[in-house]
Design a protein around this nucleic acid. Structure first.
Lengths: 198, 198
DNA sequence: ATCTTATCTTAACAACGTTTAGATTCTGAG
DNA sequence: CTCAGAATCTAAACGTTGTTAAGATAAGAT
């Protein structure tokens, strides 16, 4: 039964194969099943077929584990952002598609998306986490710059990208915003920023 | 010692006076001291001078208590938004001041601000909570409408207000945004939306 | 083959939220 | 004023949680 969780990289090593990767994968699965509220290290350990102390050995504590999941989440987001941008008909639509990639990820990868912006649950200063988060953000920044070639400077682009990034995340946490209108709100915001830049 | 927590409304009633209000007040204080991570019902009970089961009797469970704190938080925000708008030199500045009111609240009332947008920790569908949250949002919506009298319709105003609301909240949860640049980002976003509306 | 290191288990700990039963205090009808 | 009923709070216990220390097991190195 434990052979199922050894699908990546070096396998059949040590006791349970590549446990860190398995814990990240199963952790995202558990988060998808029970949400961040029902999540616990013990449930995850049982799901991965190990005891409670095993995750602690690799990730230190719960925060470390969630940080690893969030780090991988941003790696996945970056990949999906690039894919989405490639199939966009215009550079303006590429910006829209990149922001929408995060929304789609909340339904396709709910476990990973659950911890991406939970700075209180993870080690927000962790080096690897910051790198992956900034890499995804950098893609949006670059895409926005390409969509507005006549912008006055890189500082304005960066400012608009940050605001856009904040809006994208903020849209998911407000009680007065229904899910079906998020895309329209996003398009509206992007257009406003793009128009302001030129 | 327990007389200090009975400062509002009906006092010296029942065993500990107005315990629900005291729990909300002390709960915000505890949140300000130890953050949402260090918060616990037992610490709060000890701080309020009661046993653990007392909060449960009034608020059902932890979520109910945090919901009450979040509800009061939005009441406070609404009041501070109105104050901020009154002393703004223009209607455009009033919109800015209203959004900044939330940022200021995160330093002046950190305990209350800690749970306002934590929909996972509270009863997001609670009637009182929704009312207070929508009331604060309505103030921003109204202020934005007054700042852009030539807007085409109320739907566009509402859309922009929601996007602005989302940006304001999102700015506080992103690792790549430093605290000192939030105001600039907010002003930039508001201008972009206002310009797009006319 | 043996030593060293990394990995995982076992066991125990304090702290947590919730629940039940009972004690205490307030309220209000007679 | 009295006293039954209701509201409020205490006391005690339960299962679950994250973390930790010590020991067992397996892999890698010399």
């Amino acid at each position: 039964m434990s052979d199922m969780s050894q699908n990546n990289q070096t396998r059949d090593k040590y006791h349970h194969g590549n446990l860190p990767d398995a814990l990240i994968h199963e952790g995202a699965g558990l988060l998808a099943d029970v949400g961040i509220e029902g999540f616990s290290l013990r449930k995850l350990a049982a799901r991965a077929g190990v005891t409670v102390a095993a995750p602690a050995h690799h990730f230190g504590n719960t925060k470390g584990l969630l940080t690893a999941i969030a780090t991988r989440a941003f790696m996945r987001l970056a990949a999906q952002m690039q894919d989405a941008a490639l199939s966009a008909p215009s550079r303006h639509d590429a910006v829209v598609a990149m922001c929408l990639a995060y929304f789609k990820m909340r339904t396709t990868d709910p476990g990973y998306a659950a911890v991406m912006f939970r700075l209180d649950l993870i080690h927000a200063s962790d080096e690897h986490f910051r790198q992956s988060a900034f890499q995804a953000f950098g893609l949006l920044e670059k895409s926005l710059a390409e969509a507005v070639p006549n912008a006055t400077g890189t500082a304005e682009i960066s400012t608009a990208a940050k605001a856009l990034w904040a809006t994208t995340q903020g849209l998911t946490t407000l009680p007065m915003i229904e899910h079906r209108e998020t895309e329209q709100l996003l398009r509206h915001t992007i257009s406003a920023h793009v128009d302001a830049l030129r």
